[in-house]
Amino acid sequence: MQIFVKTLTGKTITLEVEPSDTIENVKAKIQDKEGIPPDQQRLIFNGKQLEDGRTLSDYNIQKDSTLHLVLR
């Protein structure tokens, strides 16, 4: 499925993911596309910070959902 990740600069990254993917996996995909190390990434969905060990389906993230990427 496709999800979107919006950065603070207003750029939107499109990712191909599975609901069973962990947040860690998603961060690795963002690193592949953008070169941002996962330990600098914080992903936010519906105002909640997403934890590495959880999956997209844990957070009820579905296709065409938009996550927000904050760098630390």
Score class of each variant (00 low, 15 high):
M1L: 14
M1P: 02
M1W: 11
M1N: 08
Q2N: 14
Q2V: 10
Q2W: 14
Q2R: 13
Q2A: 10
I3E: 00
I3K: 00
I3V: 11
F4W: 14
V5H: 00
V5K: 00
V5P: 00
V5E: 00
V5G: 01
K6S: 08
K6P: 01
K6I: 10
T7S: 06
T7A: 15
L8Q: 13
L8W: 03
L8S: 08
T9Q: 04
T9A: 11
T9L: 15
G10Y: 03
G10K: 04
G10D: 08
G10T: 04
G10N: 08
K11R: 02
K11A: 04
T12Q: 12
T12N: 04
T12D: 14
I13L: 09
L15T: 01
L15R: 00
L15A: 02
E16K: 12
V17L: 10
V17I: 11
V17P: 03
V17S: 14
V17K: 00
E18A: 05
D21G: 07
T22W: 11
I23H: 04
I23V: 08
I23M: 02
I23P: 05
I23G: 05
I23N: 03
E24M: 10
E24I: 12
N25G: 09
N25W: 09
V26P: 00
V26Q: 00
K27P: 00
K27S: 02
K27Y: 09
A28N: 03
K29E: 09
K29G: 07
K29M: 05
Q31V: 07
Q31K: 06
Q31G: 11
Q31A: 14
D32F: 06
D32N: 09
D32Q: 11
D32V: 10
K33P: 04
E34H: 04
E34T: 02
E34N: 05
G35R: 10
G35Q: 06
G35T: 11
I36G: 03
P37Q: 13
P38I: 03
P38G: 14
P38V: 14
D39K: 15
D39Y: 15
Q40P: 02
Q40N: 13
R42D: 12
I44F: 14
I44E: 08
F45I: 09
F45D: 03
F45Y: 15
G47S: 11
K48D: 14
K48E: 12
L50S: 01
E51V: 07
E51N: 03
E51M: 05
D52T: 13
D52K: 04
D52F: 05
D52P: 05
G53H: 05
G53A: 06
G53W: 14
R54N: 11
R54V: 09
R54H: 10
T55Q: 10
T55K: 12
L56Y: 01
L56R: 00
L56N: 01
L56I: 09
S57Q: 06
S57W: 05
S57P: 08
D58P: 01
D58W: 09
D58F: 08
D58M: 02
D58I: 05
D58R: 11
Y59L: 05
Y59K: 01
N60E: 14
N60R: 09
N60F: 15
I61W: 01
I61F: 03
I61V: 13
Q62D: 09
K63A: 08
D64K: 02
D64G: 09
D64T: 03
S65A: 07
S65Y: 10
T66R: 03
H68W: 02
H68M: 03
L69V: 03
L69K: 00
V70G: 05
V70K: 03
V70Y: 09
V70P: 01
L71P: 03
L71K: 15
L71R: 11
R72G: 09
R72Y: 08
